[in-house]
Amino acid sequence: MIEIDVQVDLFHPADRVWHALTDRALLARWFTEVEPMAGSRGRLLLFTAGLPGFDAAVDAEVTDRREPELIALRCLEGGRRSRLACAVAPTAEGCRLSVREVLEHGSWNDEQRERREESYRQALTGRLPAILDWLAFRQVDLSRGEPGMTAEMPVTEVVGDEPAPAARRRRWPLLVAGLTGVVLAAGAAAWAVLPAEPDPVAGPVATPSPTATATPSRTPRATPSARPTRSATPTPSRPSRTPSATPSATPSRTPTSIAPPAPAMTARYRTVSTRLLGFTGEVVVDNSGSAAVDGWTVVVTLAEGGSLTDVSGAEHRRDGQVVTFTGPPVPPGRSRTFTFAVRDVDQLTRAPEDCSLGENPCAGL
């Protein structure tokens, strides 16, 4: 049995996500337009013909509806029959939306299945969070007293004159264009060029002292038994100190300047999800040593204006934009993971400004 399963964690309550799933006007803005089929209770027509992975419009029938947990559809599209279910489950940060489509009759080729899954994924991770943020900040009131604009699925029969799809599309051109521009904005990061390290300074070369030239001048006046012995002593010592001491000292220092061993405790950061005005970060603390570490401390600096909304897997203390995370012991060869959610940051800020474990910066940032 061929199936498509896509999940996304959202920073919004289940009732708001349910509203975006079942409101026809909202659904048209993050997935596709939907029309009720006149004379058929719970029958809908999804205009999916232009979406990647879809061949035609989908004739759908609502088979199960449990607000705000589940809505299930039986779908007919181009000779294929499938079941589509959207499930909403609460989480500590908001809720998790799972979209699962199971093909019951007909087939998809590999390319079509991949494109169809990618179409769901782009809608759930890009356009839907933008619509939810839009609703949360109450930028637009979709009701505005216009009948038919916010009728929820499934719709029985249309009462009164229903605005044509083309008319509804013209109703919000500037809003949709502006929202799309915000969601698709890409950030650019500038990398600082590190200065080149200076070349090693060669050791000073000693110059022969005047004594070296004076010693031979006194040698003829010395007795054959004593003076040659005294002059022979400085003769081998001075050349060894002057030309040979420098090269012999340099190699002796080079092998001994061994890089410090890698720390047993390290941390690595990654941004696991993003939204219109925030992101979720994850830090993994690794213990690569042979002994257990009693505890660890990771310090994260948030961008200016960022607010910490949720932490999982660690204790934390905040001082301005600096957040200190602490956690339980880490056994040797094991790791600990914690996540934190940040909101009220601009579109280009999708990570903290700094992250470190002790004196060691977190990898990946």
Rank of each mutant, 00 (worst) to 15 (best):
T150P: 00
A151C: 07
A151I: 10
E152P: 01
E152L: 15
P154W: 08
V159M: 02
G160R: 05
D161F: 06
E162Q: 13
E162N: 06
P163T: 07
P163G: 02
P163E: 14
A164E: 15
A164S: 15
P165K: 09
R168K: 13
R168T: 08
R169V: 06
R171E: 10
P173D: 04
P173L: 09
L174R: 12
L174Y: 01
L175Y: 07
A177Y: 01
A177H: 05
L179E: 09
T180W: 02
G181R: 14
V182Y: 09
L184G: 00
A185T: 12
G187H: 09
G187W: 02
A189L: 13
A190H: 14
A190G: 04
A192Q: 15
A192T: 13
V193R: 15
V193Q: 13
L194S: 14
L194Y: 04
P195V: 03
A196H: 05
E197C: 00
P198G: 12
P198N: 07
D199C: 00
G203D: 10
G203E: 11
G203W: 06
G203I: 04
P204H: 08
A206G: 05
A206R: 14
T207D: 08
P208F: 13
S209K: 00
T211V: 15
T211K: 01
A212F: 08
T213M: 08
A214S: 03
T215L: 15
P216G: 07
S217K: 15
R218C: 01
T219K: 05
T219W: 14
T219F: 10
P220L: 14
P220C: 04
R221H: 14
R221K: 10
R221F: 15
A222R: 11
P224C: 00
P224K: 02
P224Q: 00
P224Y: 03
S225T: 08
A226Q: 02
A226L: 07
R227D: 02
P228C: 00
T229E: 01
R230T: 06
S231H: 04
S231M: 01
T233S: 06
P234G: 11
P234Y: 09
T235R: 14
P236F: 09
S237F: 13
R238V: 03
P239V: 06
P239A: 08
R241C: 00
P243W: 11
S244P: 00
S244N: 06
S244T: 06
A245L: 13
A245D: 10
T246N: 03
P247V: 10
S248F: 07
S248K: 05
P251C: 03
R253N: 04
R253E: 09
R253I: 11
T254P: 04
